[in-house]
Write a protein that binds this DNA or RNA. Structure first.
Length: 732
DNA sequence: GGCAAGTCTATTTTT
DNA sequence: TAGACTTGCC
């Protein structure tokens, strides 16, 4: 029996969690402790052993990736069609409620979900319309304000101004609400707030679901915010079988409202006497785990747990101290090359960094070394302009009141409908209380013809919608709107954008919905809620580059954590606040615990930040790892082991940031040198190859009349001063 | 519509 | 500082 086999593999704590009977439970699941296995096995156990119906379980996750993984595992263990199961992200579950009860929720039957960028664009227009500028009213701040209020459960009408600025924000919030209601738009937080309000004001509907759901399971509980918690209290309050899994040590999203304190509140509100602790780690070697434990031990605000393993010590953690960010990147890529040559798969290696900007230099070295890599993050498929344009046409076809969609595409491709015409339309729309689309027919003047052509286009597409499938509709949009032609003529990124349009057609063709669902609405929601992975090239075997945040929930054989300097990791903005510093430390904990067998921790003694060369002390988190777990391999630097002494990198041990003025830094000096009858350009920091000494790095250049010399560090040899008029070197 | 000049922004990000 | 993005001008 598959089910008993699944239980056989569990340790006592995991078994207790999986088979927990009555009442709510909190599971404190450490990194690598088999959390997902526990959640999915519990779902299977509930269905198979306790006769719980597949639609009587609600399982909520934070990311689509986690939801998919859960569905996949449940499907394989139960061999059932999981499409009727209530497994999904908070947002997709909320959407499901709202779609079903749109009338009670006060929504039109066809509403569109705004992503963060759409929300920001709309707010920009609102701010502009109110005759405010960025300096007096930052739209990003306004976005934060509105989302925060919604997360607290407040509508604009609930708020009372306590100063002028506050009053302005509230008024703009009110205006935003009005526009969203008129145009049928719902932002991310609105999905949650509106479904919360649906339940709190509509007892019948609430009863329907509190009766239906016998068991509720929540993953990554430490990431829940205030609204999600209140939502859960409403819907899970009567079921009393709420099973929450989380790890307070991996709470890294408090900057966007996550409250790890919800875990403590949960114990009380849901009457959990004794939480279950999963502390056995199945992922990392003992050395790696001990390092993680030692670091996180420095945090005061924790529920407290200690991970252990039966695994061997494994290798020590390798510490490499480069002298610049280039040295750091060079070392990492070179080391990965050796690992690859010794048989390691590239896809089992990850490079983790604190901020996205750090990937650039690494990418450069990967590129020059010809190693396959993949960067996570960045522009996602459904966020690309060409895709958003097509989807905006689709939105407008389905809902001509969607003014945001209208504004996006009315002049894309260009149809001579400029800012003045749009202003005219907006005036008519406001006075006549109609949509911009409807206003097109009312505007007289020069642009009338252009507007007519546009509205005719939309009408034609609407006609086609009646008797075409979605693939045909998307194709029609791309052709008839002129988008394909526009991108054909595009000088930049033409091929890429056309490829993406084709990819969109494929995505639509493969998209399936359940009976009774509105295909277009569902597809549009899918595009917003699951905008998909980064568009980085997918090689079968490539090194994975990502931020530590993005790495949560993943594991790799070999992990390089780079940029371990005070000011970068922990980030400068977090150094002064103890709470912030603790969150940074949790981030470090997440980074370390991603590694299964090999962990490299790396820092640069000096780094170019915002045009200034900064020398920062090594990250305090590195110092929190016991010395006996670390093997400092800086001595085998590919660029020369004496670098650190030679450069007298005082910053390495100082507690303050030392900033050197870039103008006095010789690194920018570029000299033209006559060499082998060929002109080459050399500057400090360049890598060169010498016939006899091999690879090296230029440390200094001395150009004095006809005398041209360079100080170069050669790998494994050390520093040499060479006469550039004779020396046989080549730039590499 | 295209190009040059000017402006902005550098912490993390899922939905 | 540098790159992305926006604005302004012809």
């Amino acid at each position: 029996m598959a089910i008993s086999l699944a239980l056989d593999g569990l340790n006592p704590q995991q078994l207790a969690a999986v088979t927990h009977h009555q009442g709510s439970m909190l599971v404190l699941a450490g990194a690598g402790s088999g959390k997902t296995q526990v959640l999915t096995t519990r779902i299977v156990w509930l269905i198979k052993e306790n006769n719980i119906g597949i639609n009587e379980i609600l399982a909520v996750t934070f990311t689509n990736k986690a939801a998919k993984e859960m569905l996949h595992r449940v499907a394989t263990q139960l061999n059932i069609d999981t499409k009727f199961m209530w497994i999904g992200t908070f947002h997709s579950i909320a959407l499901r409620f709202l779609t079903k009860h749109y009338k009670e929720a006060g929504l039109p039957s066809f509403f569109h979900i705004l992503d963060s960028q759409d929300q920001l664009n709309l707010l920009k227009r609102i701010v502009k319309k109110a005759n405010l500028d960025e300096t007096s009213c930052s739209t990003k701040e306004l976005q934060k304000f509105i989302n925060y209020q919604k997360e607290q459960g407040y509508r604009a009408a609930d708020l009372q101004a306590n100063n002028l600025r506050h009053e302005m924000s509230i008024n703009l919030y009110r205006e935003y609400e009005t526009i969203c209601n008129n145009d049928g738009l719902v932002d991310f937080t609105e999905l949650l707030l509106r479904s919360y309000e649906l339940f709190s004001t509509n007892q019948n509907i609430l009863n329907l679901y509190t009766k239906q759901f016998k068991h509720i399971l929540i993953d990554e509980f430490q990431d829940t915010n205030q609204l999600q918690y209140k939502w859960l209290q409403l819907i899970g309050g009567k079921c009393l079988n709420v099973f929450a899994v989380g790890d307070d040590d991996q709470s890294i999203y408090s900057f966007r409202g996550a409250k790890a304190l919800n875990m403590q509140a949960f114990l009380q509100d849901f009457n959990v006497k004794q939480p279950i602790r999963l502390e056995q780690n199945y992922r990392s070697t003992s050395n790696i785990l001990n390092a993680a434990n030692a670091v996180i031990d420095n945090n005061c605000n924790r529920i407290g747990k200690k991970l252990w393993t039966t695994k061997n010590d494994g290798n020590k953690i390798k510490l490499y101290e480069g002298y610049t960010e280039e040295d750091e990147a060079y070392f990492v890529v070179d080391e990965i090359k050796s690992l690859y040559q010794s048989g390691l798969k590239l896809s089992s290696i990850a490079i983790l960094y604190r901020s996205n900007a750090q990937s650039r230099i690494l990418e450069h070295f990967f590129y020059t070394q010809g190693l396959a890599y993949r960067v996570y993050g960045g522009l996602r498929f459904f966020d690309r302009q060409e895709i958003k344009h097509v989807l905006a046409y689709l939105r407008l076809i389905k809902n001509t009141s969607d003014n945001e969609a209208f504004l996006r595409i009315v002049n894309v491709p260009a149809r001579k409908i400029g800012a003045k015409t749009i202003e005219g339309l907006q005036t008519i729309a406001a006075t006549e209380n109609v949509s911009l689309f409807a206003a097109c027919k009312m505007l007289d003047g020069k642009a009338q013809n252009c507007l007519l052509q546009f509205t005719n286009l939309i009408h034609t597409l609407q006609q086609q919608c009646m008797n075409q499938n979605l693939t045909q509709i998307i194709n029609s949009i791309i052709e008839l709107s002129g988008l394909r032609q526009m991108y054909l003529e595009d000088k930049k990124n033409s091929i890429e954008r056309l490829d993406n349009l084709n990819e969109l057609v494929n995505a639509v063709t493969n998209f399936k919905v359940e009976d009774g669902q509105d295909l277009v609405a569902t597809f549009l929601a899918h595009a917003v809620l699951e905008s998909g992975d980064g568009q980085a090239q997918k090689y079968d075997d490539s090194v994975q580059l990502m931020t530590v945040h993005a790495a949560k929930g993943l594991e790799f054989d070999t992990v390089f954590v780079v940029g371990l300097e005070d000011g970068l990791f922990p980030h400068e903005n977090c150094l002064n606040q103890e709470n912030d510093l603790e969150e940074e430390r949790r981030l470090m904990y997440v980074a370390i615990t991603r590694a299964k067998s090999e962990l490299y921790i790396i820092r640069a003694c000096s780094r170019l930040i915002w045009g200034k060369r900064i020398s920062a002390p090594i990250s305090r988190f590195v110092n929190e790892i016991p010395g006996e777990l670390i093997n400092n391999i800086s001595g085998i630097s590919k660029i020369g082991k004496n670098n650190l002494e030679e450069f007298n990198l005082s910053g390495a041990n100082s507690n303050n940031w030392i900033s050197e003025d870039r103008t006095t830094n010789v690194e920018t000096k570029i000299s033209r040198i006559q060499l082998n009858d060929q002109d080459i350009f050399l500057k400090i920091g360049d890598m060169v190859e010498h016939v006899k000494f091999g690879k090296g790095k230029i440390l200094n250049l001395n150009i004095d009349g006809s005398k041209k010399t360079a100080e170069i560090f050669f790998i494994g040899i050390g520093k040499k001063v060479l006469d550039l008029t004779i020396a046989k070197i080549e730039k590499i």
